[in-house]
Design a protein around this nucleic acid. Structure first.
Lengths: 134, 134
DNA sequence: AGCTCATTCAACCGATCGGTTGACCACGCG
DNA sequence: CGCGTGGTCAACCGATCGGTTGAATGAGCT
């Protein structure tokens, strides 16, 4: 019963889980240390001055976010970093980063144009609506 | 200059703020919409069925994380997306993504070697099992 | 069978979060 | 001048979070 089917949430909710998981410094540190290789809960818990249970909870959060997977090795539960999730984040970030930079460049051009001429009919790169995520 | 100098937190804390800010779907959506151009609080609040105050709070969180900046235009406070913060995230992510992938590849090689030692006849079928969850 | 180590479950606690409502401030305009 | 508009501040509320302690489960070792 410990292993439910794990429904794999849809990407938006997944993003929430991932970002939320990485919002905690301890959890980020755990991820960082896991890049050096798999580790057990006790090994991971050792450097921090919190209880093992607390670290176990952290790992659960990382697991729910899909950042970490675990196997069984006797009574140990080694944690393994899942590199795949990073792509999800990178995709999200890159999309908007690029859009933002493009816009910035465009605005820059507009400003230059406005500067070159004097008072063009364009009021401001006003925007309001538009932009749909998903 | 409505408030204190805004000390600009050190990068680790900053990362926490950024990830935490993006952990909320509404806030992510606001960011997404801001890539289409600056917008006021009321404009941003319009699509959601929450109060304007709630959206104002969301924007404050994004601002504290350095994801958006604001200027004054009469009584309006247009929000502007700050593209720079994305770099911070991308750097963090890329670092560990690459490390994780390298490690994966290395492990793969080790496994192959172990396999070869045991069963040398087959000259490496070369079916690098890639990550299925992506 | 016991014992011990590794991990998790369960209950609890204070702090923070996302949301509300109501009052308040800062403009610009008639 | 008063008033409406855009936005924020303040207090409050339920839910969740990160942490604790204490007890339970699971798997090896004599």
């Amino acid at each position: 019963m410990t292993s439910a089917p794990q429904p794999v949430p849809e990407p938006d909710q997944r993003l929430s889980l991932v970002f939320s998981a990485l919002a905690d410094p301890t959890r980020r540190d755990i991820v960082a240390r896991l890049t050096a290789g798999d580790a057990t809960v006790n090994e991971l818990a050792e450097p921090y001055d919190v209880s093992v249970q607390a670290v176990s909870k952290h790992i659960r959060v990382l697991e729910d976010a899909g950042l970490v997977s675990r196997t069984r090795d006797a009574q140990r539960r080694p944690c393994h970093l899942e590199a795949g999730v990073f792509d999800l984040m990178t995709k999200w970030i890159e999309r908007y980063r690029r859009a933002a930079e493009d816009r910035y460049r465009r605005l820059d051009a507009v400003l230059e144009q406005m500067d070159a001429q004097d008072a063009p009919p364009v009021p401001t790169p006003r925007t309001t609506k538009e932009a749909d995520a998903s």
